[in-house]
């Protein structure tokens, strides 16, 4: 396997077959792809094309039926459950469609959760939380609970949580789906800016045309295969 230091994700003949109501469904049919560090890439395609399954496989949230996945030069498809948990904690930030904040924790507690799992000290956590809140424009809101925030603000907190431990990859699954277009645009511009300033890789699974326009690379999936891989100039 040839591995370039710029390569963040490499998949080799990635396949996933589900059993749904006794019927085998091929969700991913053999994807070979390389995604480099610092990319701002959108995975697009119609419903059932395999976007979410692809996300789950490259992040180790789901097991492969066949093939291999390397992330940050580590073969994650062979890792145990515990190793995968630690690997995700240290290397991947997740942003989901439904904000996914823990409602009983404050903004600060939500953001520092991953650092807590990593064993980062209290002072360091606090400092990083304040910095990231500034970055996402939520200074002064660290003690609020998610229910006291708007949808856009909650998604900003989710982005802050995903980025605070400085992972190499941010996976965003339909991050703008629940937001109005103005808030969605603001959020996307913010992520684009963070991508440029931090160099973190952003990978979106989306139907949103705005994300497709802002993305520098758009990979289109159809029936579990790559139909088109377009890199913008």
């Amino acid at each position: 396997m040839e591995y370039n230091e710029n390569n963040l994700i490499i998949t080799k003949d990635l396949k996933k077959t589900y059993k749904d109501n006794g019927v085998y469904v091929n969700a991913i049919n053999g994807i070979d792809i390389t995604i480099n560090s610092g990319e701002f890439t959108a995975i697009v395609g119609p419903s059932g094309s395999g976007k979410t399954t692809f996300f789950n496989l490259i992040s180790g949230l789901d097991s492969l039926t066949y093939g291999k996945v390397w992330l940050n030069s580590k073969l994650i498809s062979d890792m145990s459950g515990k190793e995968l948990s630690d690997f995700r904690r240290d290397n991947i930030g997740f942003v989901f469609q439904a904000y996914n904040l823990i409602p009983v924790l404050t903004v600060e507690e939500n953001i520092e959760y991953i650092m807590l799992l990593q064993g980062v000290g209290k002072k360091e956590r606090h400092k990083k939380v304040l910095n990231i809140l500034r970055e996402v424009g939520l200074e002064g809101m660290r003690n609020r609970v998610p229910t006291k925030l708007s949808g856009g603000q909650q998604q900003r907190v989710a982005i802050a949580r995903a980025m605070v431990s400085e992972p190499s990859l941010i996976l965003a699954d339909e991050p703008t789906a629940n937001l109005d277009s103005k808030t969605g645009t603001e959020l996307l511009n913010m992520m684009r800016r963070l991508n440029e300033t931090t160099g973190m890789t952003f990978l979106f699974s989306t139907h949103d045309k705005m994300i497709m326009e802002k993305a520098r690379r758009v990979i289109t999936l159809k029936d579990g295969l790559i139909e088109k891989d377009e890199i913008k100039a």
């Binding site: 992040s59 949230l61 459950g81 515990k82 948990s85 630690d86 995700r88 904690r89 240290d90 930030g93 997740f94 989901f96 996914n100 823990i102 959760y113 991953i114 799992l117 949580r161």
Partner: peptide
């Protein structure tokens, strides 16, 4: 979500 972000079983 907790599992996805790295919480061990």
């Amino acid at each position: 979500v907790l599992r996805a972000v790295g919480t061990r079983p």
